[in-house]
Design a protein around this nucleic acid. Structure first.
Length: 557
RNA sequence: UGGGGCGUCGCCAAGCGGUAAGGCACCGGAUUUUGAUUCCGGCAUUCGCAGGUUCGAUUCCUGCCGCCCCAGCCA
């Protein structure tokens, strides 16, 4: 990461940390990114990752990667591996600090025992339904569990037998004894441990009881000496509970600070829904280029730097925020404009024959890899009598504002000559199938000497040298800004989110394009070879993002 | 009629008692062999509303109003 990229923007979390440092509360800070390995990371997680790792680097502290794996039923190694890869790809390094909540199971168990000994936790044998009834509602206090007064000995014994696997799932839980009348529901004797005869991805069948997230998270932070525990808003209500545990246990107290999670327009961000899209085959997988997942974006061709830039740009706050997809796309364009080599490809071809150009002649022309960056070098493109241009670059009856090709009009061929359209060839159905043009042979790398102005420049690909490729044009996954508004978000899926175009002509140099490496197809957009779909005979390019198009905007008016 | 938060431009977001940064979007215009990029310029006399304190309030106080989260043996 470049230094200029490192976060400079102010936000309330930095301010709070700054205060803790200046007051001498801490000499250095420790943060952590604590994903549950039950799904793939998405752009919302990227915000948390950039925040936590960014804070650590801003203040010369460190950031841990900890898997909060307290629910064996949903968690898998596949996810921990994918998550590690995603975080690394995003550009962050946790060094030695890779942890798992499951590594703390024994310690957590001892913490629970401590609470039992203090009379602050008890084994409750209410059923799930009963417990719900006893919990009360938002406006009515709950009722005390009939098991609340079990003796310490009884609790110790029962809890030990829960661990030993003597009871079936759901028969008992360990609860904290706090306050059934608390306005904050999290304090109404929350469950600490539940019985789960399930195999854990790391501890196997060692345990038949597992701690609840609430009983594990804060203490895990404490064990790791996390100074600033950054989490999302919905955990604000849980903070008093975490503080209660820390106090009762007398252990190191991290400071929790909550921020608003990311919402991005035209997509959904819940893991449940993303999983559903995968399972119900609305997309090809977690890495479908339309998915807001990091694997999806990576495959699509979004550079990690663009995602980091995005996370920096959107800022951090406490108000529920909706970020316009345009912000992300702008970050991608900004990054790609700097780094992507240029090339030409004709997506909807229209054949052109240059009548005044020798039949067999082929010229090797030189074109800049990047017009603003000569240091990126140049490439060779072939020019011949027959080539393709974009159908949209020709209009039989052009308006005055259209400055591309039309009957009798002139246009510049990018990196080549100025040509004039002399004749339009149509088939029996009246469709335009070919243009007969003539070139001004004195305009290669030069403007006309007679002073005439040619405003338009269009791209082209020599017919005999064209590389046949396929293009996958990706668009937003949903057709409405907030897919969750309505009965079923799936009804808002954008039917045109994937458009396959099979006969695209690309300049020959693109044979060397490596999977995942972005190119700018001039005047069109950014594309890269899809690593998965390109296994066939033709290279398949994903459209990463279009170029800005003020002409299209003009047309739309 | 419980608890916890949040309200600064269409969307994000700085600001923390001294007279409204920045980005995206949008609108003009210049340069351009990408209608791209770049570049200039425009875009909140006003900070949810109403009072109060103060020489002075987006910043402090009070009261309203609006929005979000919480009743998983999920995280």
């Amino acid at each position: 990461m470049s230094s200029e990229e490192s976060s400079t923007g102010a936000n309330f979390i930095k301010t709070l940390i700054q205060e803790d440092l200046e007051s001498g509360k801490h000499k250095t800070i420790v943060t952590r990114f604590p994903p549950e390995p039950n799904g793939y990371l998405h752009i919302g997680h990227a915000k948390a990752i950039c925040l936590n790792f960014g804070l650590a680097s801003d203040f010369n502290g460190r950031c841990h990667l900890r898997f909060d794996d307290t629910n064996p039923i949903k968690e898998e190694d596949e996810y921990v591996n994918a998550i590690r890869e995603d975080v690394s790809w995003l550009g962050f390094d946790w060094g030695e600090h890779l942890y798992y909540t499951s590594s703390y199971f024994e310690q957590l168990y001892r913490y629970a025992l401590q609470l039992i000994e203090k009379g602050k936790a008890y084994v409750c044998s209410l059923t799930t339904e009963q417990m719900r009834e006893y919990r009360g509602t938002l406006t009515e206090p709950g009722r005390l569990s009939p098991y609340r007064d079990r003796t310490v000995e009884e609790n110790r014994d029962l809890f030990g037998r829960m661990r030993a696997g003597e009871f079936p799932d759901g028969t008992h839980v360990l609860r904290a004894k706090i306050d059934m009348a608390a306005g904050n529901l999290n304090l109404r004797d929350p469950i600490l441990y539940r019985i789960l005869h399930a195999s854990h991805h790391r501890t196997g069948d060692e345990w038949s009881i597992y701690p609840m997230y609430d009983f594990a998270h804060g203490q895990s932070d404490s064990i790791e000496a996390v100074t600033h525990s950054i989490c999302t808003l919905e955990f604000e209500d849980h903070r008093p509970l975490y503080d209660w545990f820390i106090r009762e246990l007398g252990i190191f107290a991290p400071r929790q600070i909550e921020f608003a999670r990311l919402n991005l327009s035209y997509t959904v961000m819940s893991k449940r829904k993303l999983l559903q899209l995968v399972q119900e085959k609305y997309v090809s997988g977690w890495d479908d280029p339309r998915m807001p997942t990091l694997v999806g974006m990576r495959r699509r061709g979004y550079p990690a730097a663009a995602i980091r830039k995005f996370c920096e740009r959107i800022g951090v706050g406490k108000g529920a925020s909706w970020i316009d997809l345009a912000v992300l796309e702008d970050c991608v364009r900004e990054e790609l404009n700097e780094t992507a080599p240029r090339a030409m490809a004709v997506i909807h071809p229209l054949k052109v024959v240059l009548t005044n150009y020798p039949q067999e002649q082929v010229e090797e022309l030189t074109a800049a890899v990047h017009p603003q960056k000569p240091e990126m070098g140049s490439r060779t493109i072939y020019f011949s009598r027959q080539f393709y241009i974009e159908r949209d670059d020709f209009m039989e009856e052009p308006s005055k504002k259209f400055f591309r090709l039309g009957p009798g009009r002139e246009v510049r061929l990018r990196n080549a000559y100025i040509i004039r359209c002399d004749e339009v060839v149509k088939n029996a159905a009246g469709e335009i199938i070919e243009l007969q043009c003539s070139a001004d042979l004195a305009t290669l790398g030069a403007n006309p000497t007679d002073g005439r102005k040619v405003k338009g420049t269009i791209h082209w690909v020599s017919a005999p040298h064209a590389l046949s490729i396929e293009i996958l044009q990706y668009d937003r996954l949903f057709s409405v800004e907030n897919p969750d508004k309505g009965e079923d978000y799936r009804q808002n899926l954008n039917p045109g989110s994937l458009q396959k175009i099979e006969n695209v002509y690309a300049e020959a140099s693109l044979v060397n394009a490596l999977p995942g490496v972005p190119y700018q197809f001039e005047r069109t957009g950014y594309f890269c070879v899809d690593p998965v779909d390109s296994c066939g005979s033709k290279p398949v390019f994903n459209r990463i993002v279009t170029l800005r198009d003020s002409w299209a905007k003009e047309q739309g008016k």
